[in-house]
Amino acid sequence: MFRKALLALPVALALGATAHAEKAPEEVLQGLIDSIDSRYLTQSEMNIMMMPDNPALWVGIDGEELFHAARGPNNVSMEACDFGKGPGVLEGAYVEMPRYFEDTGKVMDLETRIMHCMTEVQGFAADDPAVTQRHGSGSDHMKLQTYIAMQSNAMEWNNPLDHPLEKAMRDAGEVLFARRAGMSDFNCYACHGQSGKQVRASVLPDANVPEDWTKAISWPAFRVGHDNVRSSQHRVRGCYYQMRQPGMLAGSDASIALISYWTDMARGQPAILPDMKR
C-alpha cells in the first residue's frame, strides 16, 4: 500500500494538480453532482450504481491489447502514433483533442487521428474494415478510442486553441451549434440551451453549464439503451438525425469543428472516461 503510494506520487506530481489518475469515473461524476444542483447529472441512479461495472471498461481493456499489438501490413503497433503529446503518449492526450497536427496540417479528433494512424502508420487500406467500421463495442475503433480516452479520465478538458486553425475550427463549430436549418428549424440550443429540460423522459445537458456539459461530451460512453459503447462522432450523428438535418459525415471537418466547440464549452471540467449514459 505504502509502496503503491510512493510509486503514484511522482506520477501525480508530473501530471500536476489537475489530474486525478486514481479517481474512478464514478467518483468524478460524484464530484460534479456534489458541486452543483443538476437534474441531468442525477437522472439515472441505476447508471450511477452500475458505473463500477461499466461494460465500457472491458472494451477499454480490449483496446489496450489492440493498441500495443503489432498490426497492419506494416506490422507496427499504435505506439508509433502521435496523439498530440508524442508517439505513444496517451496520458492526458484525449482531453486535449481535437488539436492541430503538424504532420497532416489538419485539426483532428480522436477518431480521425486513429484512422490516420491505421492507414499511415500501420498501413491498413482505407477501405479495410478495421478503418471503416466505426461503431459498436466490437469494433477496433471503439476499443481503441475507449482505451485512449480512459488515459484522460478525471483530467480537465483543455483542447488547445493556440494554432490559428484550432481557433478557426472552434469558432466555426460555435456557428454550427447555433445554425438553424431543416424541417424543424432546430439548432443545438433547441435541446442544450436551458437547464433541467427533458425531451420525453430524458433530462438534457445544458451547454451553458460546464458541469453538465463535461458529462454530456464524455465519450466513449456505454449507451445502456443501445447496449454498445458509443463515440463523440456517433453522438453528433444522432443529434443531426433528431434535428431532421442531413447525415453528418463522420470525420468531416464540420464534425470536428463542432466537437472542437463542444470540448471548449467543457473546458476546465473533469472528463468522465468511460462514462455510462441512458
Partner: peptide, 16 residues
C-alpha cells in the same frame, strides 16, 4: 467557414 464546412469541405461537403 461554417458554410464552407457544410457545403464544400471534404470533397462535396461535411454532410451527405
Amino acid at each position: 467557414l461554417a458554410e464552407y464546412l457544410i457545403f464544400e469541405a471534404n470533397d462535396g461537403g461535411g454532410f451527405n
